[in-house]
């Protein structure tokens, strides 16, 4: 499948900024299951961009812009060819051992409620079956919320709500899987099964299964990701893999606007 992606991130500031430095995780990598045919990051002001790779193996871009700046817009566009693999990843670059992904972060701590939920969901199913069961259970428990996620909401607090954003669902999966001693991580990327436009990139999870390797689980859909998903970045949690980590030198507040459009090409 050929997916076309437009992802626009725009910051407006109430006072001009002297400098902006941002770390962007916005570039997908090639693997056996996805081929990046075309990819471009455009910035609407004079900026210097430098390519890097982070400790998790993600491709990152450092963006440096000199002010005064009232705002900055980063427009990402590209095309990725995907193939179906029933969620199992092949040929990804993995610099860190799976066991690293057992550690909790402040937003992915599993409290007793999450742990009980996970144990009840998986019963005594075999590892891969257990993870599918967990994925479905999360999907069924929450109505999917469409609002922009709260970037500081921890899994335990998200679990207490009736609705959950894809981000929160994915973090819940990660927290629950780790509570079952299964290495798990957060994935940021794109998916064309959401309604045409959305206000944020998509998020799902991956878990390590001994004989298979990394396997994707998308609790928003209740299924494993297929050719509809484009993986961009992985990390221990949503914050660690978010498309932009930024800092600015200047007064005032900022207003963030994000627009994502993913469409399948015939």
């Amino acid at each position: 499948m050929r997916l076309s992606i437009e992802h626009r991130t725009s910051y407006r500031f109430t006072a001009p900024q002297a400098r902006i430095v941002q770390l962007l995780r916005m570039t997908p990598r090639n693997s056996h299951d996805q081929t990046v045919a075309e990819w471009h990051i455009a910035v609407d002001c004079d900026a210097r961009l430098r390519e890097h790779r982070d400790g998790f193996g993600n491709r990152t871009t450092m963006l440096y812009a000199e002010g005064p700046l009232d705002g900055i817009e980063i427009a990402v566009s590209g095309e990725v060819v995907t193939s179906t693999s029933r969620g199992v990843l092949h040929g990804t670059f993995e610099p860190l051992p799976p066991a690293l992904y057992l550690r909790a972060t402040p937003t992915t701590v599993a409290d007793a409620a999450i742990e009980d939920f996970a144990r009840a969901a998986v019963g005594d199913a075999a590892p891969i079956g257990a993870l599918h069961a967990l994925n479905r259970a999360l999907h069924e428990r929450f109505a999917v919320a469409v609002e922009r996620p709260d970037p500081s909401l921890a899994a335990a607090d998200a679990f207490a709500r009736a609705t959950a954003t894809p981000r929160d669902l994915a973090q819940l999966f990660v927290a629950a899987a780790r509570a079952l001693a299964v290495p798990a991580r957060y994935v940021t990327g794109y998916c064309d099964l959401q309604d045409g436009r959305s206000a944020t990139p998509h998020g799902w999870a991956e878990a390590w299964v001994d004989d298979l390797g990394w396997v994707g689980f998308d609790p928003t859909l209740g299924e494993s990701p297929e050719e509809h998903h484009v993986r961009v970045a992985v990390a221990l949690d949503a914050t660690g893999s978010s498309p932009v980590a930024g800092s600015r030198l200047g007064e005032g507040r900022e207003c963030l606007e994000v627009e994502v459009q993913v469409s399948a090409q015939e």
């Binding site: 790779r53 982070d54 400790g55 998790f56 610099p95 860190l96 051992p97 066991a99 690293l100 057992l102 550690r103 221990l236």
Partner: peptide
């Protein structure tokens, strides 16, 4: 033991490979 390192918050995956 691998978990002694990989599960330790003092091991910083962010700078692994540098």
């Amino acid at each position: 033991p691998a978990d002694l390192i990989l599960g330790n918050p003092q091991f910083r995956p962010e700078i692994a490979g540098i």
